[in-house]
Computed example of a mutant assay.
Amino acid sequence: MKVEIRADDSVHIEGYVNVCERESRPVATPYGKVNEVIAEGTFQRAVDSADEVGLMVDHERLIGSTKTGLELSEDAIGLRAELDTSDEEVVEAAKAGKIKGWSFGFRKAVDSLEQRAEKLPLRRITELVLDEVSLIINKNPCYSATSVEVRADGDIDVEQRAYVETTVEVTDRTTTTAYDDGSVYTRKVHNENVVEETSGVIDYTEFDNRLAALRRV
């Protein structure tokens, strides 16, 4: 997870909510305790079919959605989220390094269960309805944000799954400098310490092609 604290007291956060095709640690499900795999493509279909996916803190407080700046997409690794927020609790947690990871809430899972001799059963999910993703700040992601709620009639209300980030990179600011020779230098700083430096060359090809096209008109 990358967390960038902006000068306007907002934060930019990006990272993976969950990884596809990777067996989870034991989680609570309608089948009891199992290991779980989210099949490749499941998240993208869920995002594409959802009218709106909420952005929450600890599954308790709504602070945004895919209609207000939350970007969700599935790539070769898994479900990726990117957002900007000025929510006071999130900003303060980011400054203190207290954002623990992500979680997501879903329902109507289409799945199959594989019984295994010396391991927990393996649940494979191929379809789901994605209701929300959460930034985990105050809860313990391993337990509080991994649950299943079942109504008295046996129907599933919502399941929640946590993804704990092993590395959280926090930067106070990013400075990019472009030079006349076309080179560009980027520096990321946290607590006045440089955490990343990159350099490269600006590619003006697309700009030059458009300019040439305009001159021909």
Score class of each variant (00 low, 15 high):
M1R: 02
K2Q: 15
E4C: 00
I5P: 07
D9K: 15
H12C: 07
E14C: 13
E14Y: 06
E14I: 13
Y16S: 10
V19E: 02
R22N: 12
E23S: 04
P26R: 12
V27W: 08
A28P: 07
Y31M: 13
G32M: 11
V34N: 15
N35S: 02
E36S: 00
V37E: 02
V37P: 04
E40Q: 11
T42M: 00
F43G: 01
R45G: 09
V47R: 05
V47D: 12
S49G: 06
S49R: 13
A50S: 13
D51Q: 00
E52W: 06
V53H: 12
V57R: 07
E60Y: 13
E60M: 10
I63R: 06
G64N: 10
L70A: 12
E71S: 12
E71A: 13
L72A: 08
S73P: 03
D75H: 10
D75M: 12
D75T: 09
G78M: 05
R80D: 04
L83V: 01
S86A: 13
S86R: 10
E88R: 07
V90H: 08
V91R: 10
A93D: 03
A93Q: 06
A94I: 11
A96L: 14
A96Q: 10
K98E: 05
K100C: 08
S103M: 09
F104G: 08
F104N: 11
F104A: 10
G105C: 00
F106M: 02
F106R: 04
F106A: 00
R107P: 05
R107Y: 14
V110K: 15
L120I: 07
P121F: 09
L122H: 06
R123V: 02
T126S: 14
L128A: 07
L130Y: 10
D131T: 12
V133M: 04
V133A: 01
L135G: 00
L135N: 05
I136T: 03
I137W: 04
I137V: 10
K139A: 09
N140G: 05
A145P: 07
T146W: 07
S147M: 11
S147V: 06
E149S: 15
V150A: 02
G154P: 05
D155V: 01
Q160L: 09
R161L: 13
R161T: 14
A162S: 11
A162G: 06
Y163N: 15
T167S: 08
V168M: 08
V170M: 03
V170L: 04
T171K: 04
D172I: 06
T175Q: 14
T175F: 05
A178V: 15
A178H: 04
Y179I: 02
G182Q: 12
S183N: 15
T186G: 03
H190S: 13
N191F: 03
V194A: 10
T198V: 08
G200Y: 00
V201W: 11
Y204K: 06
T205C: 01
F207E: 08
D208A: 14
A212P: 00
A212W: 00
A212V: 02
A213L: 08
L214M: 11
L214R: 08
R215I: 05
R215F: 06
R216C: 01
V217T: 12
